[in-house]
């Protein structure tokens, strides 16, 4: 191994051009060096082969583990669905009046909200009730704010399309699991905080009004856009929400990119009749990336929509 360092430098491309030339000449004239070179190069190639097999095995193992984990989650999900169907059926069989069911659902929801831990779906009626309550609050707090029904919901106020109900339910679940204020509560701009306060008070029109001036702000643009998108969604302005989240997704942010893709998908889901192709395309992209933070949620959302 007396030429080890020299050969190592050659194989590692650490030699200058002159040195390389000199080395090659020596290689053809010195049989000891050549034998040593052949051995060292063969060893290197064999070790590279070993490294590749090692990596392949590790990744295969990882893939299998992931598949098993997904299978377990799916079983758990199916069990939960089965259980909730059973409870639903029992409630119907016991003949509880509808109003009572809604009432208990709403109060359950409140308890759940305070626990911040459940994923119980909300009924269509509850969403309409909530929406009306929010709009009433809006009116009381800001009388100048003209109360108008958004065009998206005008025709469907009594019976929103079922895909819209699924999208809204899922959106509210996500909202419960995300801290609205995020981690920037102390640093956010004071002017934008008016929009945050309006959001906390569920004054969607005010949120949009206060956040809009920050849409192109060099620092607060992302925060403002997310607020606008979320407020528009909850104000049933799904097309506006979709456009806003689309703008955010195009910013290609590493930290929040997944979340915005998720909100964009929910917006598409809410207007599924018009944006079915966009919904399919985006959901396929997300489901093609097993490490996407919202992979399982998208999977569930697609299943929920397929049940309709």
């Amino acid at each position: 191994m007396k030429y080890y360092e020299k050969i190592n430098r050659y194989l590692g491309k650490e030699m200058s051009e002159d040195e390389q030339k000199e080395f090659k000449e020596e290689l053809y004239n010195n049989s000891d060096l050549k034998l040593e070179f052949l051995m060292q190069k063969s060893e290197t190639l064999a070790i590279e082969k070993l490294a590749a097999k090692d990596l392949k095995n590790k990744v295969r193992e990882f893939r299998n583990r992931n598949a098993q984990r997904r299978k377990k989650l799916l079983i758990l999900f199916l069990l939960l669905v089965g259980l909730s169907t059973l409870i639903g059926a029992l409630l119907i069989i016991t003949g509880k009046p509808k109003a009572e069911i809604i009432e208990s659902n709403t109060s359950d929801q409140n308890v759940i909200n305070s626990d911040n831990s459940s994923e119980t779906p909300i009924s269509t009626d509850t969403i309409i009730d909530n929406q009306e309550t929010l709009e009433n609050t809006d009116e009381e707090l800001n009388p100048e704010n003209e109360r108008k029904s958004p065009p998206d919901t005008q025709q469907t106020k009594d019976q929103p399309p079922s895909h819209q109900v699924v999208a809204m339910n899922t959106f509210l679940e996500t909202e419960r699991s995300i801290n609205l204020k995020g981690d920037d509560t102390n640093t956010r701009d004071k002017s934008l905080s008016r929009a945050y306060t309006a959001y906390e008070n569920k004054l969607w029109n005010n949120v949009i009004e206060f956040a809009e001036p920050f849409r192109n702000d060099s620092i607060w643009s992302l925060n403002a856009l997310e607020l606008i998108g979320k407020a528009a969604f909850q104000d049933f302005q799904f097309t506006k929400a979709a456009d806003t989240f689309f703008e955010l997704v195009n910013k290609e942010d590493l930290l929040y990119g997944d979340r915005w893709e998720w909100y964009l998908l929910l917006s598409y889901a809410a207007i599924l009749n018009e944006r079915k192709d966009d919904f399919d395309q985006l959901s396929n992209i997300i489901l093609g990336d097993p490490d996407h933070s919202y992979f399982l949620k998208v999977d569930k959302l697609k299943n929920d929509l397929n049940f309709l």
């Binding site: 990596l55 990744v59 990882f62 490490d291």
Partner: peptide
């Protein structure tokens, strides 16, 4: 978990 998922992708 991170690099394996990238390689898998």
């Amino acid at each position: 978990k991170e690099y394996n998922s990238a390689i898998l992708w």
